[in-house]
Amino acid sequence: MVNITINGKLVQAYEDEMLLTAIRRENIDIPALCHHEAVEPYGACRLCMVEITKDEWDGWKNHVTSCLYPVEEGLIVNTHTPTVIELRKTILDLFLAGSPRSTVIRKLAAEYGVTKTSYEEVPDGTDCILCGLCTRVCDKMGFSAISAVNRGHGKEIAPPLNEPPPDCVGCLSCAYICPTRYIKFTDDGKTRKIWGRKFKLLHCEKTGQPTITEEFARYLVKNRQIPEDYFKINDLSHRKELALKMGEITQWGREE
């Protein structure tokens, strides 16, 4: 364990954990849009920046992204200094200029007192804030079906060559993890559509209820050694089956 001071309070943190984890454990609310426990920290949205210093730094202070900064013994952290708040305000103002219609951004910006961007609205701005969560989770899951293309202000998230991505299995993790709900998909119980690709859903042989996509099941069978017949029925039917099997064993016991 290491000892750190957060907003004047001495707390203990686990070695190797990031500052953000320690700060959130103290129930201090600091925003972060590109952070998710499922993937490695990235440091792109810069909202979780905090001020750090140490006694031996002779008054020198630094601003770091807490999601990426490993805790250190003796670290003195301030999460809401005027500069830090000003920084978050500016960043949210900039996000708002790029994604003026995003409810998530608008809500967060309003919390910091920004209701209207003070900058020029970006022409053709979208709700995508390029946090990279979708591509990172897709990489982490082993598909790497989508990635960031171009750079700078023209950067966007897209499947290769902007064609339906061959490596996508339609698991929807990207859509779920997207903080601004920008990634769109449809699912009518028969087919699922995302990134311009169509996926057939598997259905429970007993109830007819849809489960996951054929491609996803195939991937799990091949790469995670899940027996293929597990996917024939859905969870409810699995439970019913288990109840009947156990019921039968119990009944035998009774009869004996």
């Binding site: 993790s173 996951i212 996803f216 439970r239």
Partner: peptide, 12 residues
Amino acid sequence: VRCQACVSACPF
């Protein structure tokens, strides 16, 4: 990440 792989994969 709500992919529900486990929901489908659990045999029980």
